[in-house]
Protein backbone atom coordinates (compact mmCIF):
# COMPACT_ATOMS: atom_id res chain seq x y z
CA UNK A 1 0.00 0.00 0.00
CA UNK A 2 2.75 2.46 0.94
CA UNK A 3 4.69 2.22 -2.28
CA UNK A 4 1.36 2.55 -4.07
CA UNK A 5 0.73 5.87 -2.34
CA UNK A 6 4.16 7.10 -3.31
CA UNK A 7 3.49 6.13 -6.90
CA UNK A 8 0.27 8.08 -6.84
CA UNK A 9 1.98 11.16 -5.48
CA UNK A 10 4.34 10.99 -8.43
CA UNK A 11 1.53 10.54 -10.93
CA UNK A 12 -0.50 13.32 -9.41
CA UNK A 13 2.44 15.67 -9.77
CA UNK A 14 2.90 14.56 -13.36
CA UNK A 15 -0.81 14.95 -13.97
CA UNK A 16 -1.14 18.64 -13.23
CA UNK A 17 -1.42 19.36 -16.93
CA UNK A 18 -4.48 17.14 -17.02
CA UNK A 19 -6.29 19.19 -14.40
CA UNK A 20 -8.88 20.53 -16.81
CA UNK A 21 -9.63 17.04 -18.09
CA UNK A 22 -10.02 15.76 -14.57
CA UNK A 23 -12.62 18.43 -13.88
CA UNK A 24 -14.56 17.14 -16.89
CA UNK A 25 -14.14 13.55 -15.81
CA UNK A 26 -15.16 14.41 -12.26
CA UNK A 27 -18.31 16.10 -13.52
CA UNK A 28 -19.50 12.67 -14.67
CA UNK A 29 -19.88 11.86 -10.95
CA UNK A 30 -22.25 14.74 -10.23
CA UNK A 31 -25.53 13.18 -11.33
CA UNK A 32 -25.23 10.51 -8.63
CA UNK A 33 -23.11 12.23 -5.99
CA UNK A 34 -24.27 15.83 -6.33
CA UNK A 35 -22.65 18.85 -7.91
CA UNK A 36 -18.99 18.93 -6.86
CA UNK A 37 -19.68 15.76 -4.88
CA UNK A 38 -22.04 17.31 -2.31
CA UNK A 39 -24.92 14.85 -2.32
CA UNK A 40 -28.52 15.80 -1.69
CA UNK A 41 -29.80 12.25 -2.19
CA UNK A 42 -30.44 10.51 1.13
CA UNK A 43 -28.71 7.26 0.18
CA UNK A 44 -25.87 8.63 -1.91
CA UNK A 45 -22.66 9.45 -0.07
CA UNK A 46 -21.20 12.91 -0.26
CA UNK A 47 -17.67 12.74 -1.58
CA UNK A 48 -16.91 16.47 -1.51
CA UNK A 49 -14.37 17.13 1.22
CA UNK A 50 -14.05 13.45 2.04
CA UNK A 51 -10.68 12.05 3.07
CA UNK A 52 -8.60 11.76 -0.11
CA UNK A 53 -6.80 8.59 0.96
CA UNK A 54 -10.07 6.94 1.83
CA UNK A 55 -11.72 7.92 -1.47
CA UNK A 56 -8.82 6.63 -3.51
CA UNK A 57 -8.44 3.45 -1.50
CA UNK A 58 -12.16 2.63 -1.70
CA UNK A 59 -12.40 3.33 -5.42
CA UNK A 60 -9.41 1.15 -6.18
CA UNK A 61 -10.86 -1.66 -4.09
CA UNK A 62 -14.19 -1.25 -5.87
CA UNK A 63 -12.51 -1.25 -9.25
CA UNK A 64 -10.84 -4.56 -8.50
CA UNK A 65 -14.04 -5.99 -6.98
CA UNK A 66 -12.38 -6.31 -3.59
CA UNK A 67 -15.16 -4.23 -2.09
CA UNK A 68 -18.81 -4.60 -3.03
CA UNK A 69 -20.51 -1.63 -4.63
CA UNK A 70 -23.61 -1.52 -6.77
CA UNK A 71 -22.37 0.57 -9.68
CA UNK A 72 -19.08 2.19 -8.64
CA UNK A 73 -16.82 -0.79 -9.20
CA UNK A 74 -18.42 -1.50 -12.56
CA UNK A 75 -17.93 2.08 -13.71
CA UNK A 76 -14.40 2.33 -12.39
CA UNK A 77 -12.97 -0.67 -14.13
CA UNK A 78 -12.10 1.23 -17.29
CA UNK A 79 -10.29 4.01 -15.41
CA UNK A 80 -6.63 3.88 -14.55
CA UNK A 81 -5.48 4.01 -10.96
CA UNK A 82 -3.94 7.38 -11.79
CA UNK A 83 -7.26 8.76 -12.97
CA UNK A 84 -8.88 7.44 -9.82
CA UNK A 85 -6.22 9.14 -7.70
CA UNK A 86 -6.82 12.42 -9.48
CA UNK A 87 -10.57 12.14 -9.00
CA UNK A 88 -10.06 11.43 -5.29
CA UNK A 89 -7.87 14.49 -5.02
CA UNK A 90 -10.36 16.58 -6.96
CA UNK A 91 -13.31 15.77 -4.71
CA UNK A 92 -11.34 15.81 -1.47
CA UNK A 93 -10.45 19.43 -2.20
CA UNK A 94 -14.11 20.46 -2.40
CA UNK A 95 -15.88 21.80 0.69
CA UNK A 96 -17.69 19.29 2.89
CA UNK A 97 -21.42 20.02 2.97
CA UNK A 98 -23.20 18.30 5.88
CA UNK A 99 -26.33 16.33 5.00
CA UNK A 100 -29.58 18.25 5.37
CA UNK A 101 -31.32 16.00 7.87
CA UNK A 102 -33.66 17.09 10.67
CA UNK A 103 -32.45 15.66 13.95
CA UNK A 104 -34.83 13.33 15.76
CA UNK A 105 -33.66 13.70 19.38
CA UNK A 106 -34.81 10.24 20.43
CA UNK A 107 -32.70 8.69 17.64
CA UNK A 108 -29.84 11.11 18.28
CA UNK A 109 -29.65 10.14 21.96
CA UNK A 110 -29.77 6.43 21.28
CA UNK A 111 -27.26 6.86 18.46
CA UNK A 112 -24.87 8.87 20.63
CA UNK A 113 -24.75 6.04 23.14
CA UNK A 114 -24.06 3.50 20.44
CA UNK A 115 -21.41 5.75 18.91
CA UNK A 116 -19.61 6.14 22.24
CA UNK A 117 -19.29 2.41 22.64
CA UNK A 118 -18.81 1.43 19.02
CA UNK A 119 -17.41 4.20 16.84
CA UNK A 120 -15.66 6.79 18.95
CA UNK A 121 -12.28 5.11 19.25
CA UNK A 122 -11.60 5.29 15.51
CA UNK A 123 -14.03 7.90 14.22
CA UNK A 124 -14.07 10.43 17.07
CA UNK A 125 -17.00 11.39 19.29
CA UNK A 126 -19.13 12.69 16.41
CA UNK A 127 -17.55 10.89 13.47
CA UNK A 128 -15.45 13.95 12.71
CA UNK A 129 -12.07 12.25 12.78
CA UNK A 130 -10.24 11.72 9.53
CA UNK A 131 -7.15 9.52 9.53
CA UNK A 132 -5.17 7.47 7.00
CA UNK A 133 -8.01 5.22 5.88
CA UNK A 134 -10.80 6.61 8.00
CA UNK A 135 -13.59 8.52 6.31
CA UNK A 136 -15.41 11.50 7.71
CA UNK A 137 -18.79 10.36 9.01
CA UNK A 138 -20.07 13.51 10.71
CA UNK A 139 -22.67 14.95 8.35
CA UNK A 140 -22.66 12.00 5.95
CA UNK A 141 -26.12 10.91 4.78
CA UNK A 142 -27.64 8.52 7.35
CA UNK A 143 -29.31 6.47 4.60
CA UNK A 144 -25.90 5.78 3.13
CA UNK A 145 -24.30 5.05 6.51
CA UNK A 146 -27.00 2.46 7.12
CA UNK A 147 -26.44 0.82 3.71
CA UNK A 148 -22.68 0.65 4.32
CA UNK A 149 -23.10 -0.65 7.90
CA UNK A 150 -25.53 -3.31 6.76
CA UNK A 151 -22.64 -4.93 4.92
CA UNK A 152 -21.62 -6.09 8.41
CA UNK A 153 -25.03 -6.90 9.85
CA UNK A 154 -27.28 -8.07 7.02
CA UNK A 155 -27.30 -11.89 6.98
CA UNK A 156 -27.89 -11.91 3.21
CA UNK A 157 -24.70 -9.98 2.48
CA UNK A 158 -22.12 -12.67 1.80
CA UNK A 159 -19.33 -10.69 0.20
CA UNK A 160 -16.03 -9.76 1.79
CA UNK A 161 -16.43 -7.36 4.67
CA UNK A 162 -14.58 -4.18 3.64
CA UNK A 163 -13.01 -3.73 7.07
CA UNK A 164 -12.23 -6.31 9.74
CA UNK A 165 -12.32 -3.71 12.46
CA UNK A 166 -15.78 -2.58 11.34
CA UNK A 167 -16.92 -6.20 11.21
CA UNK A 168 -15.83 -6.70 14.84
CA UNK A 169 -17.46 -3.53 16.08
CA UNK A 170 -20.59 -3.18 13.96
CA UNK A 171 -21.27 -6.82 13.15
CA UNK A 172 -23.41 -7.49 16.20
CA UNK A 173 -25.42 -4.27 16.27
CA UNK A 174 -29.19 -4.52 16.07
CA UNK A 175 -30.79 -2.90 13.03
CA UNK A 176 -32.32 -0.23 15.29
CA UNK A 177 -28.88 0.62 16.67
CA UNK A 178 -27.42 0.87 13.17
CA UNK A 179 -30.19 3.27 12.20
CA UNK A 180 -29.79 5.32 15.39
CA UNK A 181 -26.04 5.66 15.13
CA UNK A 182 -26.28 6.56 11.44
CA UNK A 183 -28.80 9.23 12.33
CA UNK A 184 -26.61 10.55 15.13
CA UNK A 185 -23.50 10.74 12.93
CA UNK A 186 -25.38 12.05 9.92
CA UNK A 187 -26.88 14.94 11.87
CA UNK A 188 -23.49 16.11 13.17
CA UNK A 189 -21.75 18.86 11.23
Amino acid sequence: MHHKVAAFAFCVAAGVAQAADIAGLAATCHSCHGIDGASVGPTMPSIAGQNENYLRHVMIEQKHDQRYSSIMGRLLRTYSDEEIALMARHFAAKPWVPAAVDADMRLVNRGRQVAQKTCQRCHGATGERVAEGTPRLAGQWPGYLVIESMKYTDPTFHRNKPSERMAERVGNLAVEDVQAVAHFLGTRK
Binding site: S31, S39, V40, G41, P42, T43, M44, S70, I147
Partner: peptide, 10 residues
Amino acid sequence: EFAYGWLRNI
Protein backbone atom coordinates in the same frame (compact mmCIF):
# COMPACT_ATOMS: atom_id res chain seq x y z
CA GLU B 1 -32.39 2.75 -2.24
CA PHE B 2 -29.52 4.03 -4.38
CA ALA B 3 -32.01 4.56 -7.21
CA TYR B 4 -33.84 7.08 -5.09
CA GLY B 5 -30.60 8.80 -4.05
CA TRP B 6 -29.68 9.02 -7.72
CA LEU B 7 -33.03 10.59 -8.61
CA ARG B 8 -32.65 13.24 -5.95
CA ASN B 9 -29.14 14.15 -7.04
CA ILE B 10 -29.73 14.29 -10.77
